[in-house]
């Protein structure tokens, strides 16, 4: 649910990074934070456990520039991936404009990936959203590790609808901005479509 403010001439959109525990959601936001010019970003807030697992959410506000005199701002959130934090995930999904699903490419995490997508679909459905109808991008992360599934395998498991997808090594920044740009573009395109353009 984007938020358009005619007084400050701003448009705010909410993007949520979803995926199983330890897949690299927080790492994506940390990389974006580190590599964004100070004037284009706000503080990154991480509500995490002492072991650096996301407890409630990470939050990073970004400004992308102007479109027709409107400042475009994106609020990036991550959810906690651990299964038992489902109540928090539901809260963070409220009002979402676009979702990035970060999949863990390691073979032993395939089940966790699939459970997490199903959980995403279910939590969106509770809010009356359908995954196929919202801006949605998939990232296959941890491509640097040895025991990983091939992209073809990941695609057939995780991407039946042919959403834009990207290979990534979030800890080294590979694919991080490609993923972000892709979802941001989809969100803006949807906004344009929704307003009859």
């Amino acid at each position: 649910m984007s938020f358009i403010n005619y007084l400050s001439r701003e448009i705010n959109c909410k993007i949520v990074y979803y995926g199983p525990g330890l897949c690299g959601k927080t790492t994506n936001l940390q990389w974006i934070y580190q590599r964004t010019a100070p004037e284009a970003k706000g503080k990154m807030i991480s509500l995490a456990t002492e072991q650096d697992r996301t407890l409630f959410f990470d939050f990073l506000p970004l400004s992308l520039g102007e479109i027709r005199g409107f400042k475009t701002r994106f609020h990036l959130y991550t959810v906690p991936g651990q299964v038992f934090y489902d109540a928090s995930r539901k809260l963070i999904l409220k009002g979402v404009d676009g979702v990035v699903f970060v999949a863990d490419s390691q073979i032993e995490r395939m089940e966790a990936n699939q459970e997490s997508v199903e959980n995403l679909q279910q939590n969106l459905a509770e809010q009356g959203y359908q995954l196929e109808k919202i801006p949605y991008v998939i990232q296959y992360n941890k491509r640097d590790l040895p025991n990983i599934a091939t992209v073809a395998e990941l695609r057939s498991l995780m991407n039946p609808t042919n959403a834009p997808d990207f290979e990534a090594v979030a800890s080294k920044g590979v694919g991080v901005f490609d993923t972000l740009k892709s979802v941001a573009k989809l969100v803006l395109t949807e906004l344009k479509r929704g307003s009859g353009g």
């Binding site: 520039g65 027709r68 740009k181 803006l188 344009k192 929704g194 307003s195």
Partner: peptide
């Protein structure tokens, strides 16, 4: 009538942001 200013946005505007 919804998010009016965005009806006039072109794909090019969006590309230019990036």
């Amino acid at each position: 009538g919804g998010s009016a200013p965005f009806g006039e946005i072109t794909d090019e505007d969006i590309d230019n942001l990036f």
